[in-house]
Design a protein around this nucleic acid. Structure first.
Length: 177
DNA sequence: CCCTGATTCGC
DNA sequence: GCGAATCAGG
């Protein structure tokens, strides 16, 4: 891939916006993050103060990301680290997610995703959740991007939706037997 | 292990 | 000039 003027411009823009080299490489396409970094150097663009040194670590005490929670839930706390860019600095926040074991969940109606990194198609890796979010025809379409354990295509949250689409196990509602 | 940027050096 | 390999760090 050639460094056309357009691509260089985009590189400058994204780099100044604080995106990481790998993210820029993903958006440009056809280049590795090393290529991006090398180009940044060659352009003598201002680098980051230090690798990851500008990251601020903030801890959220507890955040309930889901809208609905069943009264009897066996909560598993899963912490995942979400990195996102804020201007020139990268904010790294550790979020605690409650995974409902026995929650009353409506798959199609209640579309509440625990957290989303809003990844583009090119930014997906082997261990990011590839659960699509939004309308593919619309502009806000993206992927979940959460960590997916093992090497499964989905995160632990979306797995049950993927493999157990409509399974009603309500104990609160009427049940036979 | 995941990630980050920085540097080197053969191409 | 380019970028993979490597280094150094979180």
């Amino acid at each position: 891939m050639n460094w056309t003027d357009e691509r260089v411009e985009k590189l400058k823009k994204l780099w100044s916006e604080g995106l990481s080299a790998s993210q820029i490489a993903a958006q440009l396409g056809g280049v590795s993050r090393n290529a991006v970094i090398g180009k940044v150097h060659r352009l003598s663009l201002p680098g980051r103060a230090k690798a990851g040194g500008a990251t601020t670590t903030a801890r959220a005490p507890k955040r309930n990301t889901s809208a609905v929670r069943a009264p009897n839930y066996a909560s598993r706390i899963a912490t995942r680290t979400v990195t996102r860019q804020q201007g020139a600095t990268m904010l790294k926040e550790e979020v605690e997610i409650d995974l409902m074991e026995e929650m009353d969940y409506r798959p199609a109606a209640n579309v509440v995703v625990p957290i989303s990194r809003r990844l583009g198609l090119t930014e997906l890796t082997e261990r990011t959740c590839k659960w699509p979010v939004g309308d593919p025809l619309k502009d806000d379409f993206h992927f979940c991007g959460c960590d997916s354990p093992d090497s499964s295509p989905y995160c632990s949250y979306h797995q049950r939706m993927a493999y157990q689409p409509v399974n009603e196990r309500r104990r609160t509602a009427a049940r036979a037997s």
